[in-house]
Simulated scan of single mutants.
Amino acid sequence: ELLRSHQSRPAKCLTIMWALGQAGFANLTEGLKVWLGIMLPVLGIKSLSPFAITYLDRLLLMHPSLTKGFGMIGPKDFFPLLDFAYMPNNSLTPSLQEQLCQLYPRLKVLAFGAKPDSTLHTYFPSFLSRATPSCPPEMKKELPVDSCLPRSLELHPQKMDPKRQHIQLLSSLTECLTVDPLSASVWRQLYPKHLSQSSLLLEHLLGSWEQIPKKVQKSLQETIQSLKLTNQELLRKGSGHNQDVV
């Protein structure tokens, strides 16, 4: 609020940002607190964004060990950063967006924290909702798991969206399913309202099946079987008005 009240006076805003940011160079936790509370809210304002991203870059450079920052970034802060980094046509310039992309892997480590095996399922819904495929109409009419298991599902790589934000989303969704067992149950709950996103995720999973640990493969097969039953239930209930189920 302090910065927004002085938005028409960028020099004063930058002075405030610089002064508050000094604490971060001695303490990563304090630096992240300042960045998330003061600088993230003004990210996208043309006169302030360069300083905000440069500060974050320097902060993470000065604190290569990220463990002291665990717990500072949650889903509420993480996904706006993801959108700024990877979604096209946002209010950052291309060069600033690229700079934020370079910082994204470390921000992801901070967000997932010390116990990703019990945290990642809380990130799964927002990753999934963003993974909207650009696909031909005939693909949207297919049930995502009609062919079910990897040995019997024929992949169509040309239907995958090549844009890097989709690759980032799909990789993160795979990580959630691989690391946190609760992610699979979250997916089953979300599936009926995220059919097209689930189709894209399934193709990605099956395309990288050999890289998935055997133990996780087994649980994913069970999840896929469950999704097949959901398909049958949707069709039985006459959900044909949904183009993803027809």
Rank of each mutant, 00 (worst) to 15 (best):
S147T: 03
H121K: 13
F78S: 07
R151S: 08
C148H: 13
R164V: 09
D77H: 09
F78K: 05
T122E: 13
V186G: 06
D83N: 10
S118Q: 02
R188Q: 13
L110S: 06
L190R: 09
H121Q: 03
L96W: 06
K140S: 13
G74F: 07
P181M: 08
Q102K: 11
V109M: 08
L177D: 03
C135F: 09
W187L: 08
V145L: 15
W187T: 02
L100K: 08
S185H: 12
P88T: 14
L195T: 10
S129H: 14
P144Q: 09
L92T: 10
R151Y: 13
L169H: 09
D117N: 14
K159M: 09
S172H: 08
L200T: 05
P150C: 00
C176Q: 07
S147D: 12
T119C: 13
L100F: 07
V109R: 12
P116A: 03
L143W: 12
P181A: 07
T93V: 11
V179M: 08
Q97W: 04
H121M: 04
S91G: 00
L190F: 06
R164W: 00
E154L: 11
S198Q: 11
H156S: 15
M160S: 08
L128C: 02
K141I: 10
P75Y: 04
E175L: 10
P157H: 02
L177Q: 03
S172P: 01
R188S: 14
S196D: 14
F124M: 15
L82F: 14
L200M: 11
P88H: 00
L120C: 02
R164F: 07
L143D: 07
P133A: 03
P116V: 10
F112K: 00
Y104Q: 05
W187Y: 01
V145H: 14
R164H: 04
F124N: 10
R164P: 06
E142I: 07
S126E: 12
K76G: 13
Q189Y: 14
K108S: 01
L92M: 03
F78D: 02
S129V: 11
V109H: 10
K193R: 14
P94M: 04
P125F: 09
L201C: 12
Q197H: 06
Q197D: 05
Y123F: 00
A131G: 01
P136T: 05
L128Y: 00
L143K: 15
